[in-house]
Design a protein around this nucleic acid. Structure first.
Lengths: 351, 351
DNA sequence: TTGCAGCGGGAATGCGCTTTCCCAAATTCC
DNA sequence: GGAATTTGGGAAAGCGCATTCCCGCTGCAA
């Protein structure tokens, strides 16, 4: 048995479908109270549930927000998702979720699927790729988004602009000031450490990772320190772990009384930092005694980590909310100004 | 400018809409290759994107999977979400996300919204509430689900059955053996500790929490130990933190040489355990020296926590996948047998 | 050659709803 | 009291697509 329809309700109430529609689904025209009541009764007794698909088709607005992330189980993205979800609830919309693993090809596919579902807006989170082998896919993604916008869609991208995207209206960017913040972090750390700096980052071509490297190096340069060595690995916990392992093989635990030559590691995000810390520890290095380490993002779940991790706080939830709001008509003027702040904790304490 | 339609494509290709439909959206009837090519060309040049709403309306199947969770940023739920998402991708479906904060009222609302969107299936994660003040809402939720199932919907609920739900077909439960696993954990811990046991749990009436308490107490009883005291708090990190604080005020750090009277805490989930550990530490208690602690879930992000947390591993991702699969026609026979395992780590090491 | 099955394409209907347009009755105004 | 207006309801035309039914055509056996 299929769900009952508006027409059935109307018949039971002895009115026309038009009238039933008007009373049940907020129209500007309000039928008389007696009739309205009869219709509501009928709807109730039939267990009527309006067919959102049909409604969407008829009034061409779906109330859908498409969210694309790399991995919903990554706390970075789930925090953003929470922000998106929150706005969605307030606006009485629903969010459609797509995970892509970060490849532009899949992102394009996700956008196409959202477009097909006629989502009112699309929020894209996750770093852009500037790798040459992704160039073609990026272009296609940009084209897909462009088409979507031309058809009246709203898109917000979190982090940095899509490579090659047009400046159509309906296209919003919530920029994350990775460079500036990483620079600040470097400046802060430079005041505490003079040991060699090392950056554990994602593969070359991940915009977020690259920006954070750039900012950090810039900060070191301004402090007249030589540039940090950069170790590349996966942009996740495993990558951090691997990089940490490699690093550990080169670093000796400090002998007591020995002059301080302590490495200071900047991991391009918190989960990498945690991974690195884990492998350093496994190799007998202690934090912050033998090596200092800082991350980026200030992931909530990781705040109880010991030693507490120095990092850069990003208002992830707010970022998600802001991105979503910027796609909503009413708040179109929302500025995408995101601020973060350096948080120094125990993991980088001077010895 | 609205997106172009099938009719426009058909006209441009000089064929009927029927034919265009057949070539573009996998029908059983395949038009001739020459015509097909012409249609594809036309579609390409117009940037045609099929309207999934209209398709859904016409063939009454949306390819939508509704997922309801308490909080998408909670790693427990985001892990499950990943599993759901994965199956969704394989099946070429999309997931609709709703977060409820755990109240049956909002869950009902979410289910109604999914039903309105004609989602093919609904996955509900998160503990049931058995509180009397939620009884009415639970019943309404059950009724909503029942109606949804009668209309041909598939629902899977993770954890425990919905209170008062009918045994309609289309209604599946992926049971999490909280009681048995908590009992196992208690048994394991009873072999290592004889100090007083304390349970830090969520509010009374949260099924998952209550089940874990029950199992744990049962395990203690079987080991001929007296029941653990139960401290109630929020079923999240904050709750754990609060409970830990209260507990800390009663526990003294062990003086060296003093006979062992070490509390062993079982927190009803990992994030509570982490919260509790944080406040215990703030109060000068060291783990596992002064107090032992175990959690439940084995949240991935928390595995690098130090001291490493004893817990019960739950295959959360698999749970999400299984639940989703059970709602899909082809795999309807999927059994909902979930197994977990006790993992003893350093946080409960005997002194 | 005729008859029939089989195939490729088009016309038309309907999915469930919103909304414009239309019409009758009720109301207002002079 | 009649005309002008407002009000409240219904008829009907889509929204964009899938699909059933139908029709003309070809290929084959009789």
């Amino acid at each position: 048995m299929a769900a009952s329809t508006l027409a059935e309700v109307a018949k039971l109430a002895g009115v026309s479908p038009a009238t039933a529609s008007r009373v049940l689904n907020g129209s500007s025209r309000k039928p008389g109270e007696d009739i309205a009541e009869r219709v509501r009764q009928a709807a109730e007794s039939l267990g009527y549930v309006p067919n959102a698909q049909a409604q969407a088709l008829a009034k061409s607005s779906t109330g859908l927000i498409g969210l694309v992330v790399h991995d919903i189980a990554d706390p970075y993205f789930s925090a953003i998702a929470r922000g998106v979800q929150q706005v969605a609830r307030e606006q009485h919309r629903m969010v459609l979720l797509a995970t892509t693993g970060g490849t532009p090809v899949d992102e394009r596919e996700a956008v196409a699927a959202f477009a097909a579902r006629r989502a009112d807006s699309i929020v894209i989170a996750g770093t852009r790729s500037t790798r040459t082998e992704d160039a073609a896919a990026n272009l296609e993604l940009a084209a897909e988004l462009d088409r979507y916008c031309r058809n009246g869609g709203q898109v917000a991208v979190v982090g940095q602009p899509i490579v090659g995207a047009q400046e159509t209206d309906g296209y919003h960017v919530v920029t994350i000031p990775n460079i500036a913040l990483a620079e600040k972090l470097a400046t802060s750390l430079a005041g505490l450490h003079d040991g060699p700096f090392v950056i554990i980052a994602g593969p070359a071509g991940l915009a977020t990772s690259d920006e954070r490297i750039e900012g950090f190096q810039r900060g070191l340069a301004k402090a007249s320190l030589s540039p940090a060595e950069v170790i590349r690995a996966g942009f996740n916990r495993e990558g951090g772990f691997e990089a940490g392992k490699e690093l550990a093989s080169r670093i000796q635990p400090r002998q007591s009384g020995e002059p301080a030559l302590r490495h200071c590691i900047f991991a391009a995000n918190d989960v990498m930092a945690i991974g690195a810390a884990a492998s350093l520890r496994e190799n007998g290095l202690r934090i912050p005694r033998d090596v200092a380490i800082a991350g980026f993002d200030d992931i909530e779940t990781l705040r109880d980590f010991r030693p507490s991790l120095s990092t850069v706080r990003l208002p992830l939830e707010e970022i998600g909310s802001l991105a979503t709001l910027s796609t909503v008509e009413h708040h179109r003027e929302t500025s995408g100004q995101i601020t973060g702040q350096v948080i120094l904790r125990r993991s980088t304490e001077p010895s």
